[in-house]
Amino acid sequence: MSDIEIKDNPDIKSELQTPPEPGYSEWRKDENTLYNDGLPEEEKDWFCDARPQKARKSVQVIENFLNWARSQSLWILAFGTGCGAIELRPLVTSRYDISRLGMQPRPTPRQANLIMIGGYVSIKTLKRIVRSYEQMQGPKFVVAVCSCAINGGMYWDSYNTVKRIDEYIPVDVYVTGCMPRPEAVLAGFNKLKELIKAGKAEGQNLYIERFDWYKENQKKVIKDWNMPDYNW
């Protein structure tokens, strides 16, 4: 009993709750541009170095209607990183059939609204997740499946697995379980729909608001950062 130590890490919690301080990190030129330091010199021209801006919302009445439409037509980018990816396949079969909810899998991040993290996230995968997430457009939502994405799960002492995905991208809904049944994933989707309809799933704006904090967390673990600071 005594060797189990409850870790209460106050600085993480406070960092999560207070917005980051203004002021420029060393990888930012000024308020509106990014350095793109990870890129080689000859590749810097190939990529956009603009800092992402917060997206404006429309009038509340129209926004409510649009949120309803968004919740009825979620296109999934299934990022199958772990065992949870196996649970996504039954979702499109005749037994569970997410297409009746207006959802469909979409193979390109450009057209997807919802990225599903399917399980444990190693560093190499995290890089791809960040890249895919930043390439998605508009109000974008994240659903993280499996306990590994939530607190590390059985990879709690692994040298190459991040233990909480919400430090790197904003997560709207977690689905617990190792692995969760498709019913649980469906319940997660319904929860996400409620959040969207209530206008609470604003992960995209949160990401841009705390851009510096997310980027610092990402760069802390991704040691060979060889992509632009924001993947447009």
Binding site: D157, S158, K163
Partner: peptide
């Protein structure tokens, strides 16, 4: 690995 993991990645309390 445990020490490395604790030093590098943050725990969810």
């Amino acid at each position: 690995t445990k020490a490395y993991s604790e030093a590098t990645y943050s725990h969810r309390p």
